[in-house]
Design a binder for these strands. Structure first.
Length: 255
DNA sequence: ATGGCGCGCGCAGCGCGA
């Protein structure tokens, strides 16, 4: 199984990139974030032509998540149970015996904002839900835009970023609590290039200067981490015309 | 390091993202 995550920053604008990437990499599952589109406008037909089923939970302008897959998903959930939220940030489904949980964690804006408190509450609710979800589904993958760089090596300039949103201690602690549920950061199971990131600001030529953060992740339960054979970030789409500011992350899991 | 980019909305310029 090849599973992937990509914050596309508008599926409408990025559909050609997504179709190219699907054709080139042939993943079994691709989780998308920031589709920014109501469900009625989702490009189901174009993706079906490319051989992918789509499940999606979107809204106008903001947020929105989707799961593209070769095989159909079952037991789909579109919210964290018990956590009231008008923002479409969660999509979970079961594909080939694997629980796929696609998340778009709130950005948080700045650590002194209400949005930051929402982010922390959201992450707490996620943890509570995943605790149960893991008892039901031993083979679980948590993929998405976490909006958290977990370690210093995940930030191009950790001194500058210390205490700022995306790299503050409360966020990193929330990330560690997810790991404590028994999840593994699949990217760190393998040797990786120095200064590997998954997001670069559109401004300041940040990509060309590799001023990035690793905030998109694939976390795996033990039953998936053991057979995981690779995890990498594909920076190639970030080099294209009109790119998303995020790069896809891809993991391969053996039988 | 945060004005500088890109998106949606909607037709000017603002809110938001990270």
């Amino acid at each position: 199984m090849k599973i992937a995550t990509w914050n596309v920053n508008s599926i409408k604008v990025r559909l050609p990139h997504v179709l190219d990437w699907l054709a080139a990499h042939q993943p079994d599952v691709l989780c998308l974030q920031e589709t920014k589109l109501e469900d009625a406008n989702f490009p189901t037909a174009e993706l079906a032509t490319a051989g992918y089923q789509a499940q999606f939970s979107g809204q106008k302008t903001y947020n929105g998540v989707a799961i593209l897959s070769r095989l159909a998903g079952t037991d789909t959930v579109m919210a964290i149970p018990g956590f009231t939220d008008v923002q479409k940030r969660v999509l979970a489904t079961t594909i080939a015996g694997m629980r796929i949980v696609n998340i778009y964690v709130p950005n948080g804006q700045s650590v002194d904002s209400d949005k930051f408190q929402y982010k922390l509450a959201w992450l707490q609710a996620l943890k509570t839900w995943l605790t149960e979800e893991l008892t039901r589904h031993p083979k679980l993958a948590l993929l998405g835009d976490f909006n958290i760089a977990p370690e210093e090596r995940d930030v191009y300039d950790p001194q500058t970023w210390e205490g700022l949103v995306l790299f503050s201690q409360p966020e990193r602690e929330a990330f560690r609590q997810l790991l404590r549920l028994g999840l593994t950061d699949s990217f760190r199971l393998f040797d990786q290039p120095e200064k590997s990131y998954s997001w670069w600001d559109y401004r300041m030529n940040a990509f060309r200067r590799n001023m990035g953060l690793r905030i998109d992740h694939i976390l795996l339960s033990g039953a998936l981490a053991r057979p995981c054979t690779s995890c990498r970030i594909d920076a190639a789409p970030r080099k294209q015309e009109r790119p998303s500011d995020h790069a896809p992350v891809v993991a391969e899991i053996g039988n």
